[in-house]
């Protein structure tokens, strides 16, 4: 394997790196996880470059790889309880919930971000990824089901469950809805 191939590939994907990292961060919620997902995605993309064949936009192709790598990564974390240690909600938001329970007023605070992150950590990998794609990335349910490789109905149900878990977790800590 000539080193030049790697350099050409890295130059090709360089302008998408920030996009990939931020997408991975939204999907996984942690910087270290996002960094791992980007590395894994670039590796996958490099090893399977022959599958790209210019049939789709490079970013679209990379996006699909990042989403699936993030899913695998989250599933892997679940299988290793030592690596998967979400912060308990109760440790996160005592102050936030008791001081001002309105989510819109809390939204800008660091406590609120930690509270939401902890609530999302309670979601299953598919719930988390479908929710993040719909909510943060603004992808349609049809696009999500296509990217993740599940049916439309399945994608909807995962989003419903994710929203339910999020609301329950927030309500349990006194955030008014």
């Amino acid at each position: 394997m000539p080193d030049g191939d790697v350099d050409v590939f890295l130059a090709l994907v360089e302008r998408h790196r920030t996009y990939m990292y931020n997408l991975a961060l939204r999907l996984t919620g942690r910087e270290q996880n996002a960094q791992d997902v980007v590395q894994e995605s670039l590796l996958n993309a490099f090893l399977h470059l022959d599958r790209f064949e210019g049939r789709a936009d490079l970013r679209t192709w990379l996006n699909r790889i990042v989403v699936n790598c993030a899913l695998d990564h989250l599933r892997g974390l679940r299988r290793r309880p030592d690596a998967y240690a979400p912060t308990p909600l109760s440790d996160v938001v005592d102050t936030a919930a008791s001081a001002s329970p309105d989510p819109e007023r809390l939204a800008a605070s660091a406590d609120w971000r930690r509270l939401v992150a902890a609530a999302m950590a309670g979601m299953s990998p598919l719930e988390r990824v479908t929710f993040a794609l719909r909510h943060f990335e603004g992808r349609s349910i049809a696009e999500i089901s296509e990217t993740v490789g599940i049916g439309n109905n399945a994608a909807k149900q995962h989003i419903f469950r994710a929203v339910r878990k999020l609301r329950l977790a927030l309500a349990a800590h006194g955030v008014s809805q």
């Binding site: 931020n22 961060l25 939204r26 309105d102 989510p103 819109e104 809390l106 939204a107 609120w112 971000r113 939401v116 909510h135 943060f136 990335e137 929203v163 999020l166 609301r167 927030l170 955030v175 809805q177």
Partner: peptide, 9 residues
């Protein structure tokens, strides 16, 4: 209100 307050990083 809740969902609007859940903003992306």
């Amino acid at each position: 209100r809740t969902l609007r307050a859940v903003t992306p990083p």
